[in-house]
């Protein structure tokens, strides 16, 4: 019962006027410290809703979320989020976007100079130190997402929440960023919860893959352990039998047993 992050019988029902939609039903999941967990499921099944509940941005209707055995029900920098659409503030430079987070989280514990160094350190981690004075509009989509990751890492979160962080990127940029995230996870040993709808991405990055059934009232359908040694190399994995087996399992789940029905 002493998991690092515990999602405990969480259910969510949205009510709009008289109509009610049960999006999530009784989700229970325990994540260990340093673990990389992916949540995969078809579009609209409630993945973002689940992530937002963990982030504290959306209140759960039933159940709750425990982090280090303490209930969390409001947002905070201990559960930093990287949003799908980067969510950088367009009027701030790349540096200032990260610095805003650093200033807020470390206002009491770091001096001005230390906060500057910490901001630059995190920008350098994602190889964005060179673009510190650019505005988000002046850098590419992949770079924006890197800055979003730097901002989240700079908060030194207990759990890093990624909501389809590479969803809007082209295949090549996406692969680059996946590699960067793998390296960072190896280095920093963060606890990560990532949402994706890309099977290869899930297998490549995760220690465990949580597969969700289709909504309404989505549940956890299956949890798959990815027993692949780290560090993982994209090219070497292509022919790895464990990799292929994991991939097969997820594909079967998504496209045979829980096919996406458009008129859900």
């Amino acid at each position: 019962m002493s998991a690092y992050l515990k999602i405990d019988h969480v259910g969510k029902t949205f009510s709009r006027g008289a109509s009610e939609t049960e999006v999530l039903a009784d989700i229970t999941l325990a994540v260990d410290k340093g673990e990389y967990v992916s949540i995969i499921g078809h579009s609209g099944c409630g993945k973002s809703t689940l992530l937002n509940i963990v982030a504290g941005l959306t209140p759960a209707t039933t159940g709750g979320v425990l982090l280090e055995d303490r209930e969390v029900n409001s947002p905070g920098p201990d559960r930093a989020v990287v949003f799908q659409n980067h969510s950088l503030l367009p009027w701030l430079t790349v540096y200032d976007n990260v610095r805003l987070a650093v200033d807020k989280v470390f206002s009491g514990s770091k001096s001005r100079a230390e906060r500057h160094d910490w901001t630059m350190h995190n920008l350098d981690l994602v190889q964005m130190g060179h673009a510190r004075d650019k505005r988000p509009a002046e850098v590419s989509g992949g770079m924006k997402q890197r800055v979003g990751i730097a901002r989240a890492l700079a908060m030194e979160p207990k759990v890093l929440l990624l909501d389809e962080p590479f969803g809007a990127l082209d295949a090549l940029t996406r692969a680059h960023l996946q590699d960067s995230v793998m390296v960072l996870h190896q280095k920093l040993q963060n606890t990560v919860m990532m949402i994706t709808h890309d099977v290869d991405e899930a297998v490549l990055l995760s220690d465990r893959i949580v597969m969700m059934t289709n909504g309404p009232a989505a549940k956890i359908g299956e949890v798959l352990d990815v027993a692949l040694a780290r560090p993982r190399k994209r090219l070497e994995l292509a022919a790895n039998p464990t990799y292929l087996k994991c991939r097969q399992r997820v594909l079967e789940f998504l496209y045979e047993r829980h096919r996406f029905v458009e008129a859900a």
């Binding site: 947002p75 920098p77 503030l89 805003l100």
Partner: peptide, 27 residues
């Protein structure tokens, strides 16, 4: 909503939210 979410995760207080998010966003 994205900017509000960022502010929420950072726990900006109302005064900080006004100066750092509201005014520039609504400018």
């Amino acid at each position: 909503q994205d900017y509000r979410n960022v502010a929420a995760v950072l726990r900006l207080n109302p005064a900080e939210f006004f100066v750092k998010i509201m005014v520039p966003s609504a400018a």
